[in-house]
Structure formats: C-alpha cells, structure tokens
Amino acid sequence: MTLKVLLGRLVLGVSLMFAASPAMAEGALVAKHPEPQAWSSDGVFGKFDRQQLQRGYQVYKEVCAACHAMHLLSFRNLSQPGGPEFSVAQVKALAASFKYPALDDKGEPIERTGTPADRFPSPFPNDVAARAANNNALPPDLSVMTKARHGGANYVYNLIIGYSDAPAGFSLLPGLNYNEYFEGHQLAMPAPLVSDGQVTWPEGNPPATKQQMAKDVTAFLIWAAEPKMEERKELGVQVMIFLTLLAVLLFFAYKRVWRDVEH
C-alpha cells in the first residue's frame, strides 16, 4: 500500500466523523433485527450444554472450517472444563487427524501429526489465498465472532439460517447472496447450512435440522469467544454473595460507630 492510499484513508476516516454523508446511510439497507434466542449460557447461572458444544464443534469442523479459521483455539481447549469437555483421548485422536508443517533434525521441512497443543488449522495459508478462493471476500476468523458483531450470538444464529431469495426488484450483485440480517442485505458467504442432516451426529442427539445445527454451532462459538465464562460466572456469584454480606456488616459497623454522633 502506498503512502498516498494510506493518507487518503486517514482523510476519509476523519472526514467521515466530521461530516458523515447522509447518502451513505440511505444507500445501505439496514440489517433486520435478529430474533433473540434462548441460550443455556445466558444469565447469572448460565452454563454451556456439553452435548450441544460437541455437536456445534462438529458443525464448525465439517461446515464452517472449509473457509473460516479459528486461530485462537487449540485442540486442548476442547477438553478443558467449562467447554465441550471431550475426553483427553478424543482430543488426542482428533488432533492427530491433522498434519502440521515442521522441521526434521536436519532442518528439512516435514509434516508431523497434530497434538492437543496445536491450534485449529486454518483453511487458507494467508489472507490473500483466502480472498483468491472466495471471490475476493475474506471469510473472517470465528474465534471471537459472537463478541465482534452487534447483536452477538443472536445475530450469528439468525445470519446462518436467514438466507432467502432476493425480493423482486432487488438488484443482487453477482456472486453475492441475499440475507436480511446482514447490513446491506447481500453478503459473499453462501448459505452454509443447506439441508437437514448435513452433519451426522452420534446416537442420542436431536435430529440435525438446519435450525438445530445453527443453534449448536452458535453455542459453540459463544463458548469459543468466552471459554472462561462458566468460571467467571461461578466466581461472580461467590464474589457477589461475599460482598453483600460484607456490605451488611460494614453498614452496621458504620451505624454503631456513629450512634452517639448527631449528624
């Protein structure tokens, strides 16, 4: 990028804040407000559903991971407490099914099998390759996705299943797809979940409808963005109880100290 382009961007950024042009706002179609969903992780006592996270990981691995990286996640995270809690053996086997570049003891490049300490493999070696394979659109990393979009998990869920045919008269640009939940209503990502049963879950899980798969993969993304959420909320409840009791005691101590003072 040349310096000129860079400075141009700066000027654009600053001029945007000083005089955001009304034309820009009118031209873009506003995203539809996502329908709120009930998440087991919601609320003060919220917990993840282990089975749901395991199913959601499978949806990520078999569907989303074709284009989307999650470079902040390691296989070991999948067996940590407060997450999908796969067994350590499952995680080892899972990691071993991936190959990673390495060097042998002569410095020659080789491939080794993955270990639980490895990060999730990225589908593309770099952003340029990712764009080249996706009609110049860059599939964003999903590691903190539910925290990185307005509307959070509800937005992600509604977006995944929110694809429809463009209404009559809507001029959809070539290579884009119609989705009301997206700002501007057209996005590069095609509908990721196209049919029920796209993913085959182990016995004892609910049927893999599109809604269920979307729900589960979103729950998985909530966990991935906030893997310490259960620990945080558990500690939070204890802290709040402790502080409330302390406040009550301090209030009486304060009243007792002041009891003989007219104030």
Partner: peptide, 23 residues
C-alpha cells in the same frame, strides 16, 4: 467515623463494579 462510612460505600460500589466484571 469516615473510614467506616467510606468503606461501606466502597463495598457497595465494588458490588456494582463486580456485576459488570462477572456478568
């Protein structure tokens, strides 16, 4: 006098603070 009163007020404030940290 004010150490007890301020400490009480501080803990109430920290309760408010904790709500945001944890929840």
């Amino acid at each position: 006098y004010y150490t007890t009163k301020d400490l009480f007020a501080l803990v109430v404030f920290v309760l408010f603070f904790s709500y945001f940290i944890f929840f």
